[in-house]
Design a protein around this nucleic acid. Structure first.
Lengths: 249, 249
DNA sequence: CGCATACTTGAGCGAAATCAAGGCCTGTGG
DNA sequence: CCACAGGCCTTGATTTCGCTCAAGTATGCG
């Protein structure tokens, strides 16, 4: 459920916990993407070039402009990737969660900053070592090219959102996309967790946090979504939400 | 020169014209990227799986939603890649020129439409054949991963532009970026050709064509750029243009 | 309990969209 | 040759959506 829309399953490597991280059952299902492509012995080899880390909430673990030494795979938690302008304006280019890769959009230096929204567990690879791994396991490179292609598709979708959609359309599009890629783990009846603040949402959608709040209130008022006090959102009317996501007014 | 800012040289394959297309001297220099990575015999093998085509001005050659059978490399001319909303709003996600690849942002189906702005000459590969070429020439796959990474960097930069920059900042950013990747071919004293219309520019920058026109007039009024009647633009004060590109007001 | 942070809601403003008019260039046909 | 039509572009007038500023509520933590 959940990933068929993306057209690409996400995959996660965790090597301290013997390849598949100890996540809840719902998430585990989504972590087989990379394992599919590689034999067990390959995965164990990969394990030897990666290090597991825990990033506390609010801590930055990639800084725009820094030399791009590492490449990451998220095991647990959520992080935001963003770019800042000198005067403080910020554009979040994506939220990443379990199974996502971080560091593809980098040449010599990182083109973005990454910061943990809540506690994040991740695997860190050395980029130079990764290069040599590619020659041994071409399947990994193939897979990363697929991942990059998929991220390009998402990026273009986001450009359409930022360049041409109204505030309500942006929020509706986000909620639908987020629900598609959501952790279905701890929630009882399919409420989505929104670990990011309204300000983060604004920085992602090219809006102010006030406008995000107003748009969400508008959706609540029309009984399209329901918001719990634990920052959980429940989509009550997916059809009308979809209508908002693409059509004017 | 010109491509050091991008951090990645663009490469072009043309097989009807024996690998390097018959372009002017200035452009030829930028077409060696892929050739660097491959031996002559590899290039000749590649030639056997590609077909050269000419796309007339205004003709669409990739349609969003179509099965993604092909992969393209532009030899000459300029095309726009875009996504449309049902009500006609359009977001151009990029302009591509000689040396650029088209079709990376595709899974099973194209996620965008591509249309020639002027007459375009391109090389067409079959995606399935390309896959098998990868196993024979891993250098090609490595290179495509680099290209995809680079496009992700550009996409994130564009998200920052669309989400957070003012009209004048958007135009200034575009002019600087365009001048970096410009064909330095036929122009005498470094005027850039703008083959796209104001409407295209608006669709790329998330603005209306009127706003683009006004912003350009503002830059003219301040003697920062000069616009010829051949749609050529000359940057008179690159420093002040750069200042506009990042700072407010 | 007090303070900080996150969120909501309202009022007024402003940048860009929309609506509208006119200019310039190219091609076409009388 | 001129007349005219249709793009493309510029500029002005008005509207509007989202931003800014401001006040107030809720939640969580020392």
């Amino acid at each position: 459920m959940s990933d068929h829309r993306n057209g690409l399953r996400r995959s996660s490597i965790n090597l301290s916990d013997a390849i598949i991280p100890g996540l809840c059952a719902g998430c585990e299902a989504r972590h087989i993407g990379l394992c599919d492509a590689l034999a067990d012995e390959d995965l164990h080899f990969l394990a030897s070039v990666a290090k597991s880390h825990t990033v506390p909430k609010g801590r930055m673990f990639v800084a725009e402009g820094d030399k791009a030494r590492h490449f990451f795979n998220i095991n647990r938690g959520t992080a935001k990737l963003f770019k800042d302008l000198p005067d403080g304006r910020r554009q979040i280019t994506g939220f990443v969660g379990a199974g996502d890769f971080v560091g593809l959009a980098a040449a010599d230096h990182y083109a973005f900053t990454a910061e943990a929204i809540n506690e994040v567990r991740l695997c860190r690879f050395d980029r130079t070592e990764l290069r040599s791994v590619f020659t041994t396991f071409p399947a990994l490179e193939r897979r990363l090219l697929d991942v990059a292609s998929h991220e390009l598709i998402l990026a273009q979708e986001q450009m359409l959102l930022l360049g041409r959609k109204s505030a309500i359309e942006r929020l509706a599009s986000f909620l639908l996309g987020w629900s598609d890629r959501a952790e279905i783990c701890p929630n009882g009846a399919q409420a989505l967790a929104l670990p990011m603040t309204r300000a983060d949402l604004g920085d992602y959608l090219g809006l102010t946090f006030e406008t995000v709040s107003r748009a969400l209130s508008a959706l609540k008022r029309q009984n399209i979504v329901e918001v719990g006090k634990d920052h959980g959102v429940r989509i009550l009317d997916r059809d009308r939400l979809s209508a908002f996501a693409t059509s004017r007014s």
